[in-house]
Design a protein around this nucleic acid. Sequence first.
RNA 1: GCCACCUUAGCUCAGCUGGUUAGAGCAUCAGUUUUGUAAACUGAGGGUCGUCGGUUCGAAUCCGACAGGUGGCUCCA
Length: 612
Amino acid sequence: MDEKEQLHAMRHSLAHILASAVQNLWPDAKFGVGPVVENGFYYDIDIGEYKISEDDFEKIETEMRSIVSKDQPFVRSIKQIDEAINWAQEGKQPYKEELLNDLKRAGTTVAKDLNPEELGTIAGDDSVTSEVSFYTNGNFVDLCRGPHLESTGKTGAFKLMRVAGAYWRGKDTNPQMQRIYGLAFASEKELRTHLNMLEEAKKRDHRKLGAELDLFTFSDLVGSGLPLYTPRGTYIRDGLIKFSEAVREQIGFERVWSPHITKKDLYEVSGHWEKFGSELFLVTSQETDDKLVMKPMNCPHHSQIYSSRPRSYRDLPIKYMETTTNYRDEKSGELHGLSRVRSLSQDDSHTYCREDQVDEIFDQLIERIREFYSAINMSLRLRLSLRDESDAYLGPQELWDFGQNKLAEIAGRNNLEYYQETGEAAFYGPKLDFMATDAIGRVWQVATVQFDFVQPERFGLEYTDEKGEKKRPIMIHCAIMGSFDRFFSVFIEHTAGRFPVWLAPEQIRLITVNQESATIEFADKIVDEARKLGLRVKVDNDNESVGKKIRDAEVWKVPYTVVIGEKEIESSEVIPRIRKDMEVQPSGPIAISNFLQSIANEVGSRVTKSSL
RNA sequence: GCCACCUUAGCUCAGCUGGUUAGAGCAUCAGUUUUGUAAACUGAGGGUCGUCGGUUCGAAUCCGACAGGUGGCUCCA
């Protein structure tokens, strides 16, 4: 076993140790599955009325440690399938029994979405399992493919983290079990490193920083999942949106506008009504019987703009973009800060083109997306999101084949690390998803470029080719931030609220040493000059100590802080205090107008590090 | 939507198993001080303890419903 397999086996073994501990403590416990997940493991457990809480963790961990110290060997054994089913029945393990029955019928337990009838029909004779393997440690026996450690004593560092409800086999009509999550690493040190990362993530939580830095808020009267952006948050919002639009203007995108409500007919034609109807907000006219919906996306509108006039092959590609708010009735339990909201603003764009233009369009978009993410210091990887074999996808197979091959080709030549994942395509086409890594190593899905093989057909979009024949254009969706709101949550956590100067809501803070009129007048003069350069500047003239006001500017993460007193008034020079993450420290006094001009230049070029 | 948990001042939190006028720090406001690179001093205001209902002689505390939130599950155009 190499190191990776060893770690996997160790985490899996800990899942068994967790289950044995639970069995020792609650002998009636019924077990589901206990797989390895990123950084650890979990086990799904049903112990009837009693609900395990985090208060029980100490007790469970103690029991786990006792099992570890007993150094019980993991012993593999083979049972005939019927013998195994018998074992599950006698041991009152209904979940295991269900898994074993699936194994017997279909030779797999992974076909979790299939109901028993379907499962029966796909099972060929070859796949029927006649034998299954078990692992035993101490008095705990579990159906398991393995591999495991030699014995319980070989485990590394672990910690139980949380308990959560989880549907048996992920289906919301099934009973809900309790899932106990644990972290596990080869060494105490690695575990601690990971816990520190989680600690750091907690400090950067956008919901916490959003309130502390006065960026956005929620109101019970407005409703859950409906964020309100404050002036400070809106500076950043506007700055990012402007940038996202600017990078696409460079490659010929033009802004369009569409209303926020529409007849539901639009989505019946597009196919969204059938697929997402239950998540649409409905609006009714009080005068007529018109049934309207709040728009959940913009592509059908843009397609209507496309089809508003006849198009020639010479007009293509046609490129529309619109940054606008969409409304989706997300289930209450799915809402989460800004990452999942009911009113989300997309920096959306749609290209209608000929087949021979596809390569150039993708290459350009990828280049612009890279420009955007390099400006905010995030590295990108590409995910090729392809369809799987389910029937969740619409559109002709030939187009899917063309699109999936094309995307693989494009991904291969764009100097970005990429990988592919099936089952991640949109229902209307395959996509390139951009995965950004943040400052503490977490990966987020951000930008996306997607083929659409459904809407051109459904809306009957056409252009006239050089022979005078009608043809279908190819439609390509692209969003650079995706949902602005979700992107903002990532960006806040990536920067920990230390926004680059070009986005900082407050770029310069002037701190007065005293409240004499000469000082105030001097500060006001600097404010005027800074505003003429388009800079965002504030004066802190509170009757507090300079130390206190410096601290306050630090807490608000203001990039440049300047103390104004007699010395500055006399010399017209300042010694700016530069926020620590900006690396470059001031070399000494600088004439005020030079100082302001250099910041204006910095803002203009969107640099992320101070150039002073 | 489902499971578990949480909700006390603008924020962070204290308030023992139900027992008079619910506390602290920060923030806010006022006064003193006129301050030189991460927290000056003094004082004041601010809470029908998320909402509604119930149990009780008595509820921030117990029970229920609802709202909002947290961690997951499910979903994510």
